[in-house]
Amino acid sequence: MKDRLLLSVWLVAVVGITFIHDPLWLGGLLTAALLLAGRATPTLLKRALIAIALVNIAVSLGFVLSASLAGEPWGLFVLRLNLRVLLLTFLTLWLARHLDLVRAVDFSRSLQFVVVLALGQIKTFQRLLTDYRMAFRSRSLGRPDLATRARSAGRQAGALLEKAELQATEVNLGMRSRGFFDDRT
């Protein structure tokens, strides 16, 4: 219940923020969010700044340049864009830190199963990929050329695809053997 509420409040907040255009309001909300996040603030703020840096710097600099050349003002836009994107990213990272996604989607049994299974399978696939990468590195004496790296990437993705086919069948049989589908008509 707590997680569902958290998810709902965050969704409303995120949509609401995109309707706010006054930098004063956006700045106030960002300050409040930074204060409310408590001890997690420095870590979350650093992650948020890294996440938005590339796009925001490019868009801001591009706008400053084009507006300056045209002799138009640019300050308000740059402030608004950066405050809004930073606030939204900070809130999302804060949510990611506190939300138990599996509990948040407990309103739908099927969706909950998809999320649980997907999270488990992601770990399995990531392990497989790491194994492939380490094996490739251990077999390469020097820096591999483009064709070799392409072949390796192809094999990695191919192995994932095959594993996915096998895992889907295996998980389905596991669910069937535990009676997951028995209460369906």
């Binding site: 099927s110 199963f113 998809v114 999320v115 649980v116 299974l117 997907a118 999270l119 488990g120 399978q121 992601i122 399995t124 696939f125 994932l160 695809l161 996915a164 895992q167 889907a168 069948t169 998980v171 389905n172 669910m175 069937r176 997951f180 589908f181 369906r184």
Partner: peptide
């Protein structure tokens, strides 16, 4: 019946 496991595995694969 294979919808849930299929979708979950495909999602993990895409991720």
């Amino acid at each position: 019946d294979a919808l849930i496991p299929r979708l979950a595995v495909l999602t993990a694969l895409a991720f």
